[in-house]
């Protein structure tokens, strides 16, 4: 055999062998002890690397859980079963985990919100947002191009007739991907048992909001004043429902002059009090069962009663 060929083999072979030996020695000397719980947790996870936990893949999440940075129940697709497994591995308790769902804080859409200009570009909210904050007069509202719908890994979002994303609450896992992708911060996570929310994102003053949108929150404080449980907070000119206090009675929905407050059960402002939300039915059933909180039951009853005369003319109209 040609000696040149042999020497090339010898040279590269020896180099590889030498460097390999040095690296093996260094690897032994500088070995990093990997926490074996990380690999155990990783095995317990679904391993689909969906990223719904907010970490890059399952391995990133496993590491953070073991470090105590991420909650045990952080794996959203895995649900309770995976959370229990992880808690067992780490010897921790599964914390009280509030399930969240995503809703669109906007009722504008193509019917209620005034257009600023006609957008004829890439059908992507993020692209439209760069052009002066989107094609709507309201700078805070939904552009309605459906970027969140495409981004949702669980196909829980659809664009409604009004081109506002509607959430399928059975499919939504509260992963928050739509919240992160929405350029206008329209999508918001709310606790899964919170039925009433303010479907507006505009902190503008009343006049500006009114000009841009028929169903914007104008900060009139009627809901704040009517709420029996102090479950409304006004930030600037935008109302917000405080979940801890809200009993889902729906008084604010009826009081709101612009129909900006929405009940999740129906997705529209309730025209009549008979259309009770699941939450209200539940609350009432509980109240009747154990009469422990008579205040609450009476409140609901009175609020329902007082609302009836107000809402009926609305229906007739």
């Amino acid at each position: 055999m040609d000696i040149t060929v042999v020497s090339a083999f010898v040279l590269l072979g020896l180099m590889g062998l030498l460097f390999g030996a040095i690296l093996a020695f260094i690897a032994k000397k500088f070995a990093v002890t990997v926490d074996e719980r990380v690999s155990q947790v990783l095995e317990a996870l679904p391993g689909i690397n969906c990223g719904a936990c907010g970490y890059p893949g399952c391995s990133g999440f496993a590491k953070s859980v073991v470090d105590g940075k991420a909650p045990v129940s952080g794996c959203i697709p895995g649900g309770k079963a995976v959370a229990d497994n992880i808690a067992q591995i780490l010897g921790k308790e599964v914390g009280e985990n509030v399930a969240m769902v995503a809703v669109a804080r906007c009722g504008g859409g193509c019917q209620n919100a005034v257009d600023k200009y006609e957008y004829k570009g890439l059908m992507d909210c993020r692209a439209a947002y760069i052009l002066g904050g989107g094609p709507k007069q309201c700078d805070y509202g939904c552009t309605g191009l459906g970027t969140c719908v495409e981004a949702c890994p669980f196909r829980a979002l659809t664009l409604g007739e009004n081109r506002i994303p509607l959430t399928d609450f059975d499919k939504c896992t509260g992963c928050g991907i739509c919240v992160r992708i929405c350029p206008n911060n329209v999508m918001m996570l709310i606790p899964a048992d919170q039925m009433v929310y303010v479907a507006c994102n505009s902190p503008d003053k009343a006049a500006a909001t009114k000009k841009a949108c028929a169903v914007g929150c104008i900060g009139c404080q009627l809901c704040l004043k009517s709420c029996p449980k102090e479950a409304i907070r006004i930030n600037g000119f935008l109302a917000e429902v405080i979940d801890e206090n809200c009993i889902g009675c729906g008084v604010c929905i009826l009081k709101c002059p612009t129909n900006a407050i929405v009940d999740r059960g129906t997705g529209i402002p309730l025209p009549e009090p008979e259309k009770m939300t699941r939450r209200r039915l539940k609350k009432e059933a509980e109240g009747k069962k154990d009469k422990k909180s008579p205040d609450e039951t009476t409140l609901i009853e009175t609020s329902n009663g007082s609302n009836q005369p107000e809402s009926q003319p609305e229906n007739e109209n």
């Binding site: 040149t4 180099m15 460097f19 690296l23």
Partner: peptide, 28 residues
């Protein structure tokens, strides 16, 4: 007969890769 200059790229990359591996382990 031992003109191996044509091996320079692969030989250099071998050296660099090993050094990077070494640095990586030490930094980790």
């Amino acid at each position: 007969m031992f003109d191996l200059a044509y091996l320079e790229t692969i030989a250099f990359i071998l050296v660099i890769a090993s050094l990077v591996q070494l640095v990586e382990m030490v930094i980790q």
